[in-house]
Design a protein around this nucleic acid. Structure first.
Lengths: 338, 338
DNA sequence: ACACACGTTGTCGACGTTGTCATAGAAATA
DNA sequence: TATTTCTATGACAACGTCGACAACGTGTGT
């Protein structure tokens, strides 16, 4: 492997001077700089990160720990956001997922330490509380889409589920809907509670009675093996003689079943029922006809901001603090005014 | 940071002896071994990979280059397969995606080299031909879900789209369907052509005439910005007076629109039309009611086998060769016998 | 008693890089 | 002219680990 020394020889300078050129340090004549750069090109020299790290004990690498990235298609955008940030700022990303096993998580932290990672982004696929082993290890950590269960104060970045559901509810109310159905997400997800609360409170503030709201559970059970009642619940809801004019769904995926339930009953969307989702999972929200009005979770921004925040924690520039990122209402054609 | 030397001091032995214990080398008394292990635990020592790499020039790290992992929810399972293999075999994974930019790809190869990666897994999200820059760089490379465009012979692992579509077609024929519609995937995807070929040939072998087949284009245009005709095409196909009894779809995502088109025309699935998909993208195939019969792409296995193959290439155990992995028919309830 | 083998441990240097400090000449100041 | 400051470069050590080899002690066979 071609090293800094071979370059130095080829350029007729010392290895330190080559180092200076590589790192853009001052005190190199334009002429020597060019000679060195030519030698680098000719020999195809590429700096050895390992050697650099060993000398300067700064790896310029962030680690990502996830639970189930790969098994759920939703929040991969978080990872994309992180990677784009890393990419723009010359950092390397080491990524591993626990698959839910805490034994595996311990191994990952160890692996990260052995690579002398600068910081860790702890990412979950569903918004929830977790108990990361960061404290044992003293690596700067930022939580994305989740928050620490224990008292430890790790900075976190989360989506504003409440605001998203509030916007959606107001949108429906603004369009004249007064009887609204709500099919709930799995209650073990942190977002589920927040979205439901927002729906309830916003409707109440507007003046709707609890009896105008038809709230039903769509899913429950452990993540990955949940029981799914959505189709049945939607069918039932739409067969009531005083049926809602609009249905709000825990997420976009569930709306597939709501659409089908509605159509099987001969109802047209949005003429007979309006429907809104949550997430803006585009594989679904754009495939449905009419296309789905929904609230986009700011996954990409979560990743971007998370990386940025971690960086300031690592460099010690900023007091760690937690943040919430807004959801954005995406208006399409699944809602009509009544 | 606690190093091998501090451990050596604490245990009252030389650093070399500590090294022996860490690497499980022979010629250490049980007693010294225990003393050293205790010191390691007490000090919380964790080996420095960078130093190890610099000494032994073996990083035990594989790189993954992808095009759009993060933007498409489908084939994340490939990555999961790779990670599980790496995990079981004590390898570290470095991952980066090009987002389609070849400038970015060049940077990634450089980054991989600077980390002295042992080998690269080149993964695409859609099956297609590509032109990786592996040759310039001489890092062992295995292609997953894609194949090299040029003459270079890089080993590759791909799904057997042909066999998958063949199985699906036979399944439909076996259930008595004689008029079959086919809505084509975007033709720029390699799998699209193979699936269509399999459908055509299998139907012809069975004795169906070209006029029994109703083949229509569902999507076209550049990936990520394609035009989508599926809903319109499906509606048209189902309004023919001599309409097909079954529709085969390029992928599962497209079947959402086919379901909705059918239901909007008052047709019931599977009583009036049977439908099959492709991919087993479970977010869709399980959400549809009735649940979708489809062919599962072996994404997870692609990753697992790819990593395994790369490993044999790196260790020089095996002649690089290309492989194809079978798709598996997943029978659910969207097809009836006629 | 001797040579010899074997198991156990230590010494030392090298990997590629950068930080520290020294040096030499040029330019600026007194 | 003498002295100081600045620019440009190099020599050398150090980071943490492991491989090569040396050295020590204990037992074995002669």
């Amino acid at each position: 492997m071609v090293s800094i020394i071979s370059v130095a020889k080829a350029a007729g300078v010392s290895n330190k001077t080559v180092s200076r050129v590589i790192n853009g340090e001052p005190y190199v004549t334009e002429e020597t700089r060019e000679r060195v750069e030519k030698a680098i090109r000719d020999l195809g020299y590429i700096p050895n990160m390992a050697a650099r790290l060993i000398r300067s004990s700064r790896s310029n690498t962030f680690g990502i720990i996830t639970d189930y990235v790969s098994t759920t298609p939703y929040s991969v955008d978080i990872v994309r956001g992180i990677q784009d940030w890393a990419n723009a700022n010359g950092k390397t990303i080491l990524m591993a997922n626990t698959g839910g096993s805490s034994k595996r998580e311990a191994e990952i932290w160890k692996m990260f330490q052995s690579h002398r990672i600068d910081g860790v982004l702890y990412v979950t696929m569903y918004r929830r509380t977790v108990d990361p082993q960061a404290g044992d290890v003293r690596i700067p950590t930022v939580m994305i889409n989740c928050r620490p269960q224990t008292h430890e104060l790790l900075p976190s970045i989360e989506p504003d589920d409440y605001q998203g559901a509030q916007d959606l509810t107001r949108y429906l109310l603004g369009r004249g809907h007064r009887k609204i159905g709500y099919i709930r997400l799995n209650p073990i997800l942190l977002g589920a509670q927040l979205r439901l609360d927002a729906f309830r409170k916003t409707a109440a503030e507007f003046g709707l009675a609890e009896s105008d709201l038809s709230i039903r559970l769509g899913m429950e059970g452990p993540v990955g093996a949940e029981k799914n009642y959505v189709f049945a619940v939607a069918t039932e809801m739409l067969q009531q003689k005083d049926r809602p004019t609009a249905i709000m769904s825990g997420n976009d995926e569930m709306t597939i079943q709501i659409y089908i339930a509605a159509m099987a009953l001969g109802l047209r969307i949005p003429e007979d029922v309006s429907i809104v989702g949550f997430d803006d999972f585009r594989t679904v929200s754009l495939a449905l006809k009419p296309e789905l009005t929904t609230a986009a979770l700011p996954y990409y921004d979560l990743g971007l901001e998370g990386a940025e925040l971690l960086n300031s924690v690592v460099t010690g520039n900023k007091v760690p603090s937690s943040r919430v990122m807004p959801c954005k209402l995406v208006e399409r054609t699944s809602v009509r005014s009544v």
